[in-house]
Computed example of a mutant assay.
Amino acid sequence: MSDSNFKNALQGMLNKKETPNSILNKSIRFSITLTNLQNKRLEILTSKLSTSKQDFIQTIIEAALRDIESELGLIDAKDYTQLGDLNLHYRTKYIREIVASLGISEDEWENLVESARD
């Protein structure tokens, strides 16, 4: 392998800048501990639904987050698009808190929301 291939690859990684969109779509891993009973129930359900445990849990977590946010009055269900993507204006304290914790500016967020509408 030539030296220049490595240098080019390394330079590409060093110059890579995260965009607001890449920040939102970045996957974060965490672990969860289940009882054996919970795990078996999960395995059987996912088998019956022909899906993976990961996809099933992601779907359940997203649905639960939306329900809880709505129940607490933090968001309105109409703030979500049909595709399930967050399409929220930078108007509530809750959304500003989420966006700020992601390191995305108000203008960057509004640009993301506008581009999602197009």
Rank of each mutant, 00 (worst) to 15 (best):
I28G: 03
I23W: 01
W109S: 03
L24Y: 05
L24I: 11
A9H: 13
Y80R: 04
I28P: 00
D118N: 08
E71Q: 04
L65N: 07
M13I: 13
K7F: 14
L86N: 07
N36P: 04
I23L: 11
T51F: 05
A64E: 15
P20E: 13
K93C: 02
R117S: 08
I95A: 04
D3S: 11
K17G: 14
M1G: 06
K7E: 14
I98P: 01
E62S: 14
E97L: 14
L65A: 03
N21C: 02
L10G: 06
T92P: 05
E114M: 08
E18H: 11
R117N: 13
N111C: 03
Y80I: 02
S4T: 15
A64R: 11
Q58K: 15
K7M: 15
K26T: 15
F6M: 12
K53Y: 01
E69T: 02
T35L: 01
R117I: 04
W109V: 00
L34C: 00
L10T: 10
E108T: 04
I61P: 04
V113H: 13
T19H: 10
R96I: 03
M13F: 12
A100G: 05
A63R: 07
R41D: 08
D76Q: 01
F30L: 08
L74M: 01
I60C: 13
S47E: 14
I28L: 05
I61Y: 13
E110A: 07
N39G: 02
Y94W: 10
P20C: 10
N111E: 11
I104M: 04
T33Q: 05
D67E: 14
A63D: 08
S52Y: 00
L112T: 09
R117A: 15
G103K: 10
L74E: 02
L86D: 09
R66G: 03
Q54I: 07
G84T: 15
L102N: 03
